[in-house]
Design a protein around this nucleic acid. Structure first.
Length: 478
RNA sequence: GUCCCCAUCGUCUAGAGGCCCAGGACCGCGGCUUUUCACGUCGCUAACGCGGGUUCGAAUCCCGCUGGGGACACCA
């Protein structure tokens, strides 16, 4: 345990919280909570074309739903704010001056247009191999001209990145180029903004996606030139689509994977279940598959994080979701499903006795709230619709007569409880020389409208005498 | 194309030289349970990409190949 741990999650608000971003946030959060350190949220909104306030809100909501609370950041404040990059422009200005003085950057007066023109002269195939020729490296200051801050890559040898997950990664300094760090309007680019903020916010462990490994050497150079203490770095393997491609919203959804976190909420996932699935993705702890949030905090460690990219598995994620749902108490299940019933137009109170009883019967059959609400639907709806295929298959002249007889038995029954119903129907069945299996399916269709449901006696008991008898009679005459 | 990274069942993974003719989980398949569907339970199929080394011994170390992924912006 190390309460000095300071980690951060730094999303850019360009639409939604990406499932992979949620995992990055989770690993940082787990590490902070395990160490009783500090989890910082920083919004990297420097891409003014794509950043929106709406997506800032969406990200807050998603983190809130997941229960990943931050100790410093927007809404809660903290001693290292502001926590939106666009409100930290003076900080970058100051660091820019410092970096120039330290020899780690220079003012570049080349315009984008000039450089684009140079690039355009190259044959198309070589365009992306273009490197800045260093025109302004030693240019004297031009007080009247606009300038961008450009990194002065200097020194010999290689940059060593000692990654907690990947181990030693060496990059020759010669492979790095004089990239732009800050635009003429004072808005930083990623590598500068992230490094400056991580320094000024005292972040001592940077955990992010492995797609950022290539950025790290440039950032290490900034730390070095600023004489700032280097944080530890932990890069997380990528979460890919089932096809093994980088998970974009479009590609993910093409393959049936939800990429925005809010989708999981809409589909009725338990936040802890989603956390469990994404934590177990790239990280493991022996043979354990199901973890509570507390166990995740207790057991998480970088040593168990693997370096191989993985592919999202929808089936397994559904299983994890179901495991968590089934672990809930009846009361929690009832309370949780109420909004999802409401979404289907069914108003039920969370402490409704019938709901509590009904929930027991569908518990082993559900993987999400949405599933569960669907399974519960027939208990609470006044008029059910019969599944045509099921009705055709099981409701015929013979079964209709039996349903009518069963309705009679039930309507005169003294003890309308599951035990009472079972006893009475068993007596009736044996008097008829029948077994439950001969009438179960027709009864199921009549009572629930479907060919699959909880056990017939449970359904009868929970549904209540009035509705049960009415549905049986309705089906027997149709 | 260049640079970087990765490589165990279909998928997520255990495995840090002998404990592994490779273990767990999901999926799939089969049995049991059973009024349906689930849940549960028992079992089965299924992997160390290839080639060289090093070593008494390699899934584990080294090299090459192949395959995959990522990055190559005044995006993040």
């Amino acid at each position: 345990m190390d309460p000095n741990v300071r980690v951060r999650f730094a999303p850019s608000p360009t639409g939604y919280l990406h499932i992979g971003g949620a995992r990055t946030a989770l690993f940082n959060w787990l590490w902070a909570r395990k160490n009783q350190g500090t989890f910082v949220l920083r919004i990297e909104d420097t891409d003014q074309d794509r950043s929106t306030e709406e997506s800032v809100r969406v990200i807050f909501e998603a983190l809130d739903w997941l229960g990943l609370d931050w100790d410093e950041g927007p809404l809660v404040g903290g001693p290292h704010g502001p926590y939106f990059q666009m409100r930290r422009l003076e900080v970058y200005q100051e660091f820019a001056e410092r970096l120039i003085r330290a020899g780690g950057a220079y003012r570049c007066y080349c315009t984008k247009e000039e450089l684009d023109a140079q690039r355009a002269k190259l044959p198309e195939k070589k365009r992306d191999r273009w490197v800045y020729p260093g025109t302004c490296r030693d240019r004297t200051d031009e007080p009247d001209l606009p300038w961008v801050l450009r990194q002065r890559v200097h020194g010999e040898g290689e940059v060593l990145l000692n990654d907690l997950v990947y181990g030693a990664i060496r990059t020759p300094i010669s492979a790095l180029q004089d990239q732009v760090l800050m635009r003429a309007n004072g808005v930083p680019l990623y590598n500068f903004g992230a490094a400056v903020d991580d320094i000024s916010m005292g972040i001592n462990l940077v955990a992010r996606g492995s797609d950022h490994i290539v950025n790290t050497p440039s950032q290490i150079l900034i730390y070095r030139d600023l004489d700032a203490p280097l944080p530890r770095f932990a890069h997380l393997p990528m979460m890919l689509t089932p096809d093994g491609k980088k998970m974009s919203k479009r590609l993910g959804e093409q393959q049936g994977i939800d990429v925005p976190v809010e989708k999981y909420r809409e589909k009725g996932w338990l936040p802890d279940a989603l956390l469990n699935y994404i934590a177990r993705f790239g990280w493991s702890q022996g043979d354990q598959e199901i973890f509570t949030r507390a166990e995740l905090i207790e057991k998480f460690d970088w040593a168990q994080v693997g370096s191989g990219d993985g592919r999202f598995d929808k089936k397994k994620s559904a299983w994890v979701s179901g495991e968590h749902l089934r672990a809930q108490s009846d009361a929690a299940l009832a309370a949780g499903v109420v909004p999802f019933l409401a979404a289907r137009g069914l108003t039920v109170a969370p402490d409704d006795a019938k709901l509590l009883a009904a929930v027991k019967t569908v518990r082993p059959r559900s993987t999400t709230w949405v599933d569960m609400a669907e399974a519960l639907d027939f208990y609470f709806r006044d008029e059910i619709t019969l599944d045509p295929a099921a009705a055709q298959k099981f409701l015929n002249e013979g079964s209709r007569a039996q349903l009518a007889a069963i309705a009679d038995v039930l309507s005169t029954l003294d003890d309308y409880s599951e035990a009472g119903i079972t006893a009475a129907l068993d007596a009736w069945l044996s008097a008829q020389g029948l077994e439950i299996k001969h009438v179960a399916q027709p009864a199921r269709v009549a009572l629930t409208g479907r060919a699959a449901s909880p056990g017939i006696y449970e359904v009868l008991a929970v549904l209540g005498r009035e509705r049960a008898v009415a549905r049986l009679r309705a089906a027997s005459v149709a």
